[in-house]
Nucleic acid binder design. Structure first.
Lengths: 208, 208
DNA sequence: CCAAAAGTGTTCTCCATACACCCATGC
DNA sequence: GCATGGGTGTATGGAGAACACTTTTGG
């Protein structure tokens, strides 16, 4: 099981990578992953791995694809069920390494050469994320609990890799009825105060 | 590995099922499936299984999802990568059983109680097929090489489970530029002759 | 001759897009 | 006072949905 963990900071969209301490690919960066235990489901394994690596429990997590090329692991035949996750880097300070291994966040387009077929997995995860974003509101998981519409739009632009029109974006998101106003404003920046919004957890049912 | 094989005949949309000869679920119907060999990819395993069961080689085949509930197989822990396939029942006469086991085609909504979690797998395959059909032309694989627009529309209506407007359907499909006229007509039925169309294999690139 | 199916255009609505200005705040 | 970013409305074009009649052919 391997997991593509996406996070967002002020530099952009990031992915969590682990530097391997053992052969094969010793010293190379790889996606966090591990073996599914005999008494846990695939989802549970992914969630456990994610918690071990980031300390986070409640995150968006979804199965991506299962990779089964014969030689993807040079040691022996290993099939990997890949997941992808969206985590909130801004509030919890994610300790990116629980164990001795080095772990770090890389820009999704600045990742080093990855071990195994993990570049393919990362690529597919990015495409899936883009695809989902197009037709259903997702990705609030990457933002703080309260966020401005500009932050949300910025996230969309990062993932879709194109600029969006501010007025159209705001109208579409608000009409979709998946976020609601809070009574707070973001302040401190130059410029007017920005209304903070919150994801409506009960809205999931309406969308799907 | 398990495989949901869809076929189309004049009764409707069918799925291929195998009656199990061995415990567990002896005598129950199940999806065709088998174990992935150590020197074949997942796709190859699915294709091999499909050929063993139906004798067909060139079919649409796509990975669906990986099922990993702990108790899905009562004997021991088994994770299954599910695929779905679209085959053409009308031209090749598919021998639905290569080996001793009973095999038969069932209407997708008339299937008996299935072994393991295969009902879930079938359900998800149906939803995936519906989802794909909505936004990209697919499903020609279920029809004869040459087909009329009415046949194609009938297929869409079966999968989507709703009626479609004839004029809108024809316009959309023709504008999508994925099928082309042949020089033949279907005749023999009551009523005027119907132009036969063919799928444009080179059109795949344009769509995806 | 009648039932069945093929083929064909236009209108309307709605959604997506394009586009520009004013105002509040921090420095 | 100025740079930064928040917030707002309208006009246009394109896609999808609704809708009915004529013609051909087999029985």
């Amino acid at each position: 099981m391997d997991c593509v963990v996406f996070g967002l900071d002020d530099e952009g969209l990031k992915v969590l990578l682990i530097q391997r301490g053992l052969a094969p690919f010793e010293g190379k960066w790889a996606l966090p992953g591990g073996f599914v235990r005999v008494n846990e489901t695939l989802d549970e394994a992914a969630r456990r791995e994610l918690e071990e690596e980031t300390g986070l429990r409640k995150v968006f997590l979804e199965q991506l694809y299962t990779f089964g090329a014969v030689d993807r692991d040079p040691r022996e035949r290993v099939v990997s069920v890949a997941y992808y996750a969206l985590v909130n880097l801004s509030e919890h300070h994610v300790h990116a390494a629980t164990d001795a291994r080095d772990a770090a966040w890389f820009g999704v387009h600045d990742a080093p050469t990855l071990a195994f077929d993990h570049a393919d997995i990362l690529q597919m995860a990015l495409e899936r994320l883009r695809g989902k974003l197009r037709y259903q509101p997702i990705g609030f998981e990457l933002l703080p609990k309260k966020f401005t519409l500009s932050q949300l739009q910025h996230l969309y632009e990062l993932v879709l890799e194109r600029e969006l029109d501010k007025r159209n974006f705001r109208r579409r998101i608000l009409e979709a009825d998946v976020i609601e106003e809070t009574e707070n404003y973001r302040t401190g920046q130059v410029g007017p105060r920005a209304m903070l919004y919150r994801y409506r957890p009960d809205a999931v049912a309406e969308v799907t």
